[in-house]
Amino acid sequence: MEIIIPVIVLGVMGLVFGALLGVAAKAFRVEKDERIEQVQELLAGANCGGCGYAGCSAFAEAVVAGKANPSACPSTKKENIHQIAEIMGVSVEDGEKMVAKVLCSGTCDKTSVKYQYDGITDCVAVYRFGGGEKTCLYGCTGYGSCVRACLFDAIHVIDGVAHVDRDKCTGCGACVSTCPKRIIELVPAKQRTFVVCRSKEKGVVIKDICQAGCIGCKICEKNCPKDAIHVVDNIAKIDYDKCVNCGICASKCPRHVIEFKKRGEE
């Protein structure tokens, strides 16, 4: 007999509370567009911020509200973007796929250091001490702030210089804005020729501090059949719209600063 009272009381409590919550759910329901959830499920879900919104859910809301185009997300697969466009009834153009590229090849054996750095392993921190420990002011510090910024495990520091894994890179640009030296750039994924140096130092200076630096000799400029590479401020720069990836500049470069990979090698 003793057990019956608590059973009844708790049972009734449960029932009353359940009913209360049921009524409350109806009474306090907030109208939410169900498309927001659908869109969010199709997004990459990395919250990388490449779209410029606070995260995937904020971006989904903006898409449903018509404030953003689904193609603004660099990380989501193309099929999913098209599905989102279908849900929303908008058209999307396929933007050119971009990937990040680190424009420095000054590995530990090719460059020298000004001093021994022994502090926080963070590029911004080391950059504050005279522009970094490497002698070259423009080179990769190798302390991996970009590695920690990458949500896709697509960038790694190898031998003192960051390298992008192009298969994993989604082109969100998180590393580009993290790098204190601004040597990471978003490039078209089909591009296979790069000047892997950003130094604006004169050739004489470069020869002393880095074996892998561009000296601005203009040999590439003279040999380019498409007028796609130019030396400005002592550094060669490729115009990716004009470049046809023929690889002539790479073979002529006396400093081997131009990286060229044949199709399928990248």
Partner: peptide, 14 residues
């Protein structure tokens, strides 16, 4: 109701 010993269960519910 004299069932103070049920407090843990009841409180979790509440």
């Amino acid at each position: 109701l004299g069932i103070g010993y049920m407090q843990t269960v009841a409180f979790i519910l509440v």
